[in-house]
Simulated scan of single mutants.
Amino acid sequence: MSHVKNVAIVGATGTIGSYIVAELLKAGKHQITAVTRQDSNAIIPNGVNVVKVDYTNHSSLVAALRGQDVLVITMSVKAPKESQIQLIDAAADAGVRWILPNEWGLDKANEPFADAALLGPPSRAVRNHIEERGVSDWVGVVCGFWYDFSLGGSPARYGFDFNDRSVLFFDNGTQPINTTTFPQVGRAVARLLDLPTTKGKEGMASLADFRNNYLYISSFCVSQKDMLESVLRVTDTRMDDWAVRHEDSAELYAQGLRMMKEGNMVGFIQAMYVRTFFPNDDGNFGKTRGLHNELLGLPVEDIDEFTRLAITRKDDKY
């Protein structure tokens, strides 16, 4: 059975990429190359090759990706929109067989939901472009929103404000969604890339099983009320210590869209998050799609551990 060996990653020191690199290094089964901009001063971990590229120079990108089996793209939402297409074109010309595009998060296979959550069209265009080039296959990682990032910081995410001990429940706060920690995403990618590329023994999973398809993983399937119960345990507080209010999710979603039209991008965050909590299980992909946690041997995590981490993010900006 063949396995991928050479893995190039864009965003190796970023929020998601750093965890993926750490898990790949821990496994010790791949040659890892960090693809960075020429002016980058990022400190790359020992054991990772570094190739600096000029995104405006196609030949530079192709040279960086030649000989790679996998390209993992983890880019900031602030990155130029054309950067991912430039990487995909270079990967095709370099003969890269597998691409994990910037597909982290919501279930884009549920197209009506993805479109309503404002992420469908751009991600669909990227996947279509990979397929149209006809060289690489893609694997999307569906992990939901990241738990500690979304619970902490902006109340426009999971509704919590730790500075004033308040929480806004969408509807009654009982709609469960899948949400994942950064370490779990790193483990999932490392274990995915450790699978054989083609079918072997009967019943054995392979990378080919996910060809032009999605990997579904999750740390927790929880509602806002479940999150609050974890918060109460971690902070040693009671319900009486918290100001809890309820608002209709459909109205909050519409409000977020209006805010976007007025140029307030907090509305984008609000609309995207609230739409995930609609009472129809769009955000509960473990129920509607099933999970690959067991297939990858992912551990069961302690939600309270990551709730503590979330609270340290209470002053994060949007």
Rank of each mutant, 00 (worst) to 15 (best):
E229I: 00
V266G: 10
Y19M: 01
E262P: 02
A310E: 12
R245Q: 13
K199M: 04
A8D: 06
E294S: 09
Q175E: 15
R66A: 11
V142P: 03
K29H: 15
Q86V: 02
K78S: 11
W98R: 14
G263M: 06
H129G: 06
E103T: 15
D316K: 13
M227H: 05
G267I: 07
Y147Q: 01
F285N: 08
Q68W: 04
A250H: 14
E23I: 00
F277R: 09
A8W: 03
A271N: 02
L295A: 12
V139D: 00
E202M: 05
V274W: 15
V142M: 05
R211D: 01
I217F: 01
F162N: 00
R165C: 01
L228R: 01
R275I: 01
E305D: 12
D171Q: 05
N178C: 15
I16C: 02
N293V: 09
N57Q: 12
F170N: 13
L119N: 13
N280L: 03
N41K: 15
K81M: 05
K108Y: 13
R127C: 14
R37Y: 02
P155S: 15
S218V: 07
I73N: 04
P196K: 00
D226C: 04
N280P: 15
R258A: 06
M75F: 10
Y253C: 04
V10P: 04
E111Q: 02
N110P: 07
A125G: 09
F169A: 05
G286V: 03
D281I: 04
V70A: 13
D248M: 01
T174F: 00
G17S: 10
A34C: 09
P155E: 13
F278M: 12
K29M: 02
D316R: 12
M260G: 00
K317M: 11
R258T: 05
D171L: 02
L295W: 04
V244Q: 10
T13G: 02
V244D: 01
A114P: 03
M1H: 15
V70C: 10
N110S: 11
V96C: 10
G28A: 05
L61N: 02
D248E: 09
E111D: 11
P112C: 09
N212W: 06
V77M: 11
T198E: 05
T180M: 06
G120R: 12
R211E: 10
P101I: 10
S166A: 07
V300K: 15
L24A: 08
F278R: 06
I85G: 04
F160V: 03
A109K: 10
D69G: 03
V50K: 00
G140V: 14
Q270M: 12
L291I: 08
D171T: 05
